[in-house]
Design a protein around this nucleic acid. Structure first.
Lengths: 225, 225
DNA sequence: CGGTTCTTTGGAACGTGTTCTAATTCGTCG
DNA sequence: CGACGAATTAGAACACGTTCCAAAGAACCG
């Protein structure tokens, strides 16, 4: 083995792909992700051509594949960075709302807003998530868990420290069921959005409010922008 | 224009892609779909190479693109045929169960069973649905509607005539909300299954039962095989 | 410093979805 | 029958993700 080789080991494990990389390699990786995100912002998933990513980030095509398993892997990495930002944001400004329903709705509103901020990029990230290969499954499962943790935090009205490892997250069975189902609705809605492109934050928020109301009971429409 | 040209007009509109085709063209189309399905059954989505499909169905590659917009389109067509079979099956043997919860669970069990009958094929079909392009959105929306109609039929404990046009289907707002959310959970679950491959009918059925219970209330686990 | 090993590079090469084209066949109408 | 247009064919061509390779560079070790 070697001391720092960048490839799989970092990414094969679910979450922390940045590990054991010297500074120059970290910078290279960052350039790759940034280039991919820029291209996605401009033209969506299809505009992220790996040849362009390589050129923009001053990296050879082959090197790119040393850092990431493929196109979707890069976008998935960006998605996870977005998740981290969301976690941080939620930690700094807790979700507001008097009832679990209101807080759940507000959580999804903020999460969705992050994705829709740049629709092209958001669509690209969702597409990378839904079209995942067997290899990226672990990563996706990890993302899912992080989302569930945030959602359950909102339901409980408890802050979630982003730096706590997700493995320590222990929801009750009931919480787990609700989170699973709600996140499922969210993903399905986002995929529908990607396919059909009706880029309306309010519509998606309303849909999540409806689903949450069904599962949590309570008065209707307990959240607003 | 012509009298029968096979290409877009049939497929551009959502549902009835078979229209205005002479018998020989219908047979060609059938051969194409059959070949694609056979290949998918054996090796999943990736094994459906259009060159192979063309060869198997004795059709030129270019002709294939006259009948379908692309690879996913063929699989989507097969998916819709599967839906029709499911509708027929449900019409002939109504979903059993004393409560809406039990019937909803049983509906998803039967729908999922159809997909998992051949996991390779089922995965390929799901993948075609989730990775859809803008053009196939209409078709997918139509499929969704057909599924919603079946589900609502099960909730109401009413038979659904497969030959009735979906457009005539008029759910109440509440039914529509529940169906939307449940189908979302179902899709998300299936996508998770495709990505992670844990091909267990019972697990998926249980998950749907949980989600349905959350939304419909009622006693737990009210359905079994 | 020389040698060894790993990383990076530039670029070719491959597979597959998709598009394009020229030639051929088919069906219909006059 | 003969002609015209539409459908089909065979196959080349293109785009892009992915893999492969030989050469150049970089880091480390004695």
């Amino acid at each position: 083995m070697s001391r720092s080789l960048p490839l799989d080991p970092s990414l094969a494990a679910g979450e922390p792909p940045v590990a054991k990389l010297v500074a120059s390699q970290l910078r290279r990786m960052r350039r790759i992700v940034d280039a991919a995100v820029e291209l996605a912002e401009q033209g969506g998933f299809d505009a992220v051509r790996l040849r362009d990513v390589a050129e923009r980030s001053d990296v050879a095509l082959g090197t790119l594949y040393k850092y990431f398993r493929g196109k979707e892997d890069i976008l998935l990495f960006a998605f996870n960075e977005g998740l981290r930002r969301l976690e941080q944001g939620l930690f700094e400004r807790r979700v507001a709302g008097a009832t679990p329903l209101a807080r759940a709705t507000e959580f999804f509103r903020r999460a969705t807003r992050g994705l829709l901020q740049n629709p092209q990029l958001g669509g690209a990230l969702i597409r990378a998530m839904s079209g995942g290969d067997r290899e990226t499954a672990v990563q996706i499962a990890g993302s899912n868990r992080r989302i569930a943790r945030m959602l359950v935090g909102a339901l409980r009205d408890e802050p979630v420290d982003p730096d706590t490892p997700v493995e320590a997250f222990a929801p009750t069975e009931s919480e787990s069921e609700i989170a699973d189902a709600l996140i499922g609705v969210w993903f399905a809605t986002l995929i529908g959005w990607v396919i059909g492109n009706e880029p309306d934050l309010d519509t998606i928020t309303r849909k999540m409010n409806v689903a949450a109301r069904l599962m949590l009971g309570g008065d209707r429409d307990a959240a607003d922008g």
